Amino acid sequence: MIKTYSKLAALCLSALVMAGCQGEQEETQRVPLVISTITLEEPVSINTREFNGQVVAAELTPLSFPVEGEITELMVKPGQQVKRGQLLARLDNRKLIQRLEDAIAQHDLSYRQLTRAQRLLGKKLISQAEFDELQANYKKAKANHQLVKKQLNDSKLYAPFAGQVSHTTKETFESVAPGETVIELYQIDQLYVKLQVPDSLLARFNPQNQGGDYQPTAYFAGNKQAYAMDYLEHTSEPTPQGMSFDAWLSMPQTQPPILPGTAATVKVDLNQAGLSSADGYRVPMTAVVPATEPGQFVVWKVKQDKAYQSQVEVSQIHTSGVLIAQGVNLGDQIITSGQAQLREGQPVTTVQQEQNL
């Protein structure tokens, strides 16, 4: 009996201790997190925008053989410049040469037989049916001769334009299938810059205000000179990573040449480019947090001393700050620190941070 009472007392004591610990833990959770904030002032209007891009190969073209075979000669290497019509690679053509010789012999034989049959037909020494058969054999031999001759020519790979070899995917003595890329070639007289344009920016495109002669300005890594570029094209569908579109600008290649892979910064005057100016609220980069979805962003707002997450549309990211087009309003209190520790509805103690952007 005494042992039973002792067990009950021990259980009660344990329950009281656990309750006390939970109370202390809940009390600890109620302690507000100290964070920094800014209060949004009047929205700003941005007429100039910068985009980060990269130099890409102009008109990158994969080259392949239309016939199968084994590569016996690969005459170029990456980085090498070639002329239009220059021989780049060759397949083993010994079997094709033999087939061509057979096709020539068959073509000559069928031609002589047809010529002889024409004289015999005029003398009515052969029937029309026999003549028709010989004529069909000649046409078949002629077609086969032309086919094998083309295949033999297709065993050589020539440069379709003057350019530079970007990449070779095969080596000597490797086998290739018809249409399999062997060499990638790009133009060296043109320079392309690829960049991404947000859908929110394209949505503000005004065709009536488009400046046909306007050229954005580009700056390249390691080069302080500014270059005027022409708009080339943009995709009709957004990229899988986010709501943005790929766009390309072009210009004549420089000397010394600017190589593919070089980082580029493109400055665009939105009004001259036929785009309305970007209006929004500028906040520090520390205020904007990537969302779970690619290309999406959120901010944390303070309402009645509690933190709440809000999705926003970012129209511009710059070293001086981020321009938010939608999702925030005048007077909103935006958290700029400690977002990784925040939970929805968590109590916070704010430390006002002046807007200095």
Rank of each mutant, 00 (worst) to 15 (best):
I2D: 15
I2E: 15
T4E: 14
Y5T: 05
C12R: 14
V17D: 01
M18S: 12
G20K: 05
Q22C: 10
Q25M: 12
E26A: 14
E27H: 12
R30Y: 04
V31M: 06
T37R: 01
P43N: 00
E59C: 06
I71K: 00
T72P: 00
P78G: 10
A89D: 03
R90Y: 02
K95I: 09
R99V: 02
R99P: 00
D102E: 15
D108G: 05
Y111E: 11
Y111V: 05
Y111P: 04
T115H: 10
G122I: 13
K123L: 11
K124Y: 11
L125Q: 12
Q128F: 11
E133R: 12
Q135A: 15
N137S: 14
K140C: 05
A141H: 03
N144M: 12
L147I: 01
V148R: 04
A159W: 00
F161W: 06
Q164V: 15
H167V: 06
T169F: 12
S175T: 10
V176G: 02
E184P: 00
D189E: 13
K194H: 07
D199C: 10
L202D: 03
F205W: 07
N206E: 13
P207F: 09
P207V: 10
Q215N: 07
Q215K: 15
F220W: 06
A226V: 01
A226C: 02
A228T: 04
H234V: 03
T239A: 09
S244K: 07
T254A: 13
Q255F: 03
P256S: 08
A273Y: 07
G274T: 02
A278M: 12
V283L: 10
V289W: 06
Q296C: 07
Q296S: 14
W300T: 03
D305E: 15
K306G: 00
Q309N: 07
S315K: 05
S315T: 13
Q316W: 12
I317P: 01
L323R: 00
I324E: 01
L330I: 14
G331I: 08
Q339M: 07
L342P: 01
E344T: 02
T349Q: 15
T350S: 11
Q352T: 03
